[in-house]
Every structure is written in structure tokens, then in C-alpha cells.
Nucleic acid binder design. Structure first.
Lengths: 135, 135
DNA sequence: GAGTAATAGTAAACTAAGGCAACTATATTT
DNA sequence: AAATATAGTTGCCTTAGTTTACTATTACTC
């Protein structure tokens, strides 16, 4: 289906800008949010794990983690190794996560207003299939 | 629907990387391609028009246009005004457009393999609704 | 018609996000 | 023990976009 990517991409800037605007009040951005999200889902994770999950090179994740540490949203403890870091959200990080999560959900509701749940679910299925095909 | 944006965004990096890799052989990138696309659809356009269409600030478009001119894919003639520039693809630009268009379509086919046309069309409809809601 | 507003485009400086190459420190294999 | 692999970091570069301020031209207003 010609033009599919174009349609897909036309949404990117508005979405990312809306998200970043929302997250800005917490000194966050979408890229930082991804790490918060991952750590909320996994309690504890290493840097390489996050890097592999998002397909972002390690240095990029190092810098995100450093920033989140500065903000006090994340702490690193020794991991299984003496090389590995075990990263986790702080209590403050958890709190901020929840607050942002609510606002993002509200934003998602606004964005998807008037679209049937079934349609949205099918769209997510399409996303997953696309991802499988591309990677 | 919670997590919708996350699903949406998980696709962005793979898609943009595949596109950029493809376009790289022509010294193009997705951001330059957008301008090529617009000029293919509109024959002739001003800088402000493109800027407004993509929601990108004018300086960003100025630089894209300059780059495309360097590549010989685009020329600017005087517009309605003595201020305005009338931008258009060169013959070479047209040729490159067509070649890239074919490859992008092939990529789109690979990415959407195994997904019913109906599903894809519904997905595009969802994109349009989302865009309407967010902007 | 003169003076003010708006519009088209550009330049410079900045920021965000990510990649690559090279490195240190530790662990694993051979 | 030596070579190799892995976790993480640092430095430097690129891409893409923004903001601010500017020039040149056009349109509006009184």
C-alpha cells in the first residue's frame, strides 16, 4: 500500500511534541521516559538490557541514565557482576512515573477520542506485524 | 487505550532507519525526501508553503532546500513576489524521485507483507483521525 | 502617499538525540 | 596465563530541529 509510511510518519512530530511538552514539567523527555517506563515494568535492569530493548546504542542509554540519576528518579546498585549496574527507579521516580503515566493516558484518550476500541486494537496489531516484518 | 503511543512509537526508529538507509544511496534522507515528495505532488511551491505543510520552522526548510539545490534535484525561480521563491524539482530531481518512490514502495510492501489491505486502510483512517484530534 | 504591519526567506547560535570509535574494568574461554 | 568477550563510559561527530534576529519586499492604514 503506497504512501503507508507517509501516513505513519505524518503523526510522529505532533505525537512526540505533545508528549515532550507534557513531560517537560517533570524535566523529562520521551527518550528519558522510555527508560522510566522500562524500569517500571522490570523493577530492575542493566544498561545493556535497556539498550537492546530499544535498539539504542549503549552510550545513548548511559547518558539517559546519568540524567535520570541527576534528577533523582533512578539509582544504580551493583549488579550480578562487578561490571554490571542494577538500575531501578527511586521512590520519587515511581511517584513521577505514576503522575506522568496518568497524564499520558489522558493525552492518549484525547488523541483517540471518537475511534472505536476495536479499531485501535487492530491498529496495534498492525504495528506489531509491521515491526516483525521490518526488524 | 493505554500504551497506544508506545506501540506507535516503537515502530518509528526501524521505519526511519530503513528509509534513510534506502535514501542514502541518493544522498537523501527522509527529511529531504519530504520536500521532494511535496514538490512532486505540487509541481511548484514556496518555502513557507512547505514549512506550513510539515509543521517545520522555516529555517529548517531553507536548509533542506539549499541541500537539494546543491544536489541538483531542485531549482528555485522567482515566485509571485520579489520575496517569494518558486521551488520545483529539476528533471534529475524527477528522475531520482521516481527511482526512490519505487524502492520505498517495495519497502512498504515488504513491511506490510501478510497484512490485509483492509486492515491497512483502516490503520490509515485511524492515523487521520488521530492527526485531527492532536493538532 | 508616508509610515507602519506583515510576509518570505536567511543566518547564527543553540538543543536534543543518536551513532561510532576507542577506552577501562571485569569476567569467561581456551 | 593469555586471549576474548562483556558492561559501561567518554569524546567527538552528525542529523534534525528550534529560537532569535535580521533583510527585503509587500500590504495595510491613516
Amino acid at each position: 500500500m503506497q504512501g503507508f509510511f507517509r501516513h505513519y510518519l505524518s503523526l510522529y512530530r505532533p505525537v512526540i511534541q505533545a508528549l515532550n511538552q507534557l513531560l517537560h514539567s517533570y524535566d523529562l523527555s520521551h527518550s528519558l521516559w522510555q527508560v522510566m517506563f522500562y524500569l517500571h515494568e522490570h523493577e530492575q535492569a542493566s544498561l545493556v538490557e535497556i539498550s537492546a530493548y530499544y535498539g539504542i546504542e549503549k552510550p545513548g542509554i548511559t547518558r539517559r541514565v546519568q540524567r535520570l540519576e541527576e534528577l533523582g528518579y533512578l539509582t544504580s546498585a551493583p549488579g550480578n557482576d562487578r561490571r554490571e549496574k542494577s538500575l531501578a527507579l527511586t521512590a520519587e521516580g515511581q511517584r513521577i512515573y505514576t503522575e506522568c503515566r496518568e497524564q499520558i493516558t489522558a493525552l492518549e484518550r484525547r488523541a483517540t477520542a471518537g475511534i472505536a476500541t476495536e479499531q485501535l486494537e487492530q491498529t496495534v496489531t498492525v504495528f506489531q506485524q509491521l515491526l516483525g516484518n521490518i526488524k
